[in-house]
């Protein structure tokens, strides 16, 4: 299988709390995979563990054949993994342009990809010189995603991009993600199933720090019992 990312029996502890209890899954190239589950299932911890922000105590995390476990976060990012954390993780004290420039891995990354990035998020072009802290919530989220697009990443990890956004803005952000999926594989954590039902190719369902099901998105959407049981929603 042409896996971009493969986790095998990953365990993560935060202090004395055992959060990930043997997470295993593989993510294929050219796909958008939704990482789903109720609050506290371990979705965010999974992304943070992949990035090395919370180190895995056991198991293996392979990205395009390279082992990530044990590497520092900046090295993992430099391998070509763009991470968009939850809570619109921008640098509020810097301007929009500085935020974007900061994401350059090589000189000129931004200039090369600016046209494409601004075609996805036109609002940002008009606000280049503005302090990022003064942007609206939706614009901040767009900036957080745009920043991950500046270098040529080979995988994007996006954590709850719709969190706290008005429905119209959610649509805008999701439309941008929809266009992105053709460029780069995406692992997307999202609580809002409605927002991603037509977006994701595959799903991974988590419960209590473990992967309980995975497969094509259509399979999950067609199974009312699983939707109710694992996500508490009706189709």
């Amino acid at each position: 299988m042409d896996a971009v990312l493969e986790l095998r029996d990953v365990h993560t502890f935060i202090g004395s709390f055992h959060i990930l209890k043997g997470v295993s899954f593989a993510m294929r190239a050219g796909s958008l995979t939704a990482l789903l589950g109720r609050n506290g299932a371990g979705k965010t911890t999974t992304l943070r563990t992949i990035m090395g922000l919370w180190p895995a105590a056991q198991g293996s995390i392979r990205f395009l054949g390279e082992e990530l476990r044990g590497r520092p976060t900046h090295e993992i990012a430099a391998l070509g993994i763009g991470y968009v954390p939850e809570h619109r993780a921008i640098f509020r004290g810097l301007t929009v342009e500085e935020n974007l420039k900061l994401a350059e891995r090589r000189r000129g990354d931004l200039a090369r990809r600016a046209e494409w990035i601004f075609s996805l998020f036109p609002d940002l072009k008009a606000a280049l010189k503005k302090p990022a802290g003064l942007l609206s919530g939706g614009q901040q989220q767009m900036l957080a995603i745009a920043r991950a697009l500046v270098p040529e990443n080979r995988l994007l990890l996006i954590d709850e991009p719709s969190e706290g956004l008005a429905p119209m803005l959610v649509e805008h952000v999701m439309a941008a993600i929809h266009r992105l999926r053709e460029e780069v594989p995406i692992l997307l954590v999202e609580q809002n199933l409605h927002a991603i039902r037509h977006l994701a190719d595959h799903y991974i369902l988590m419960e209590d720090g473990r992967v309980v099901r995975s497969g094509p998105m259509a399979e999950l959407l067609g199974n009312r019992e699983w939707l109710q049981r694992y996500l508490g929603v009706t189709a």
Binding site: M51, L53, H74, L94, K101
Partner: peptide, 18 residues
């Protein structure tokens, strides 16, 4: 800019590869 980013939020700066 990286210094400013590290001062504001180290984790975010590290996740960008610094």
């Amino acid at each position: 800019r990286v210094w400013a980013a590290l001062r504001e939020n180290e984790e975010r700066a590290v996740a960008l590869g610094y």
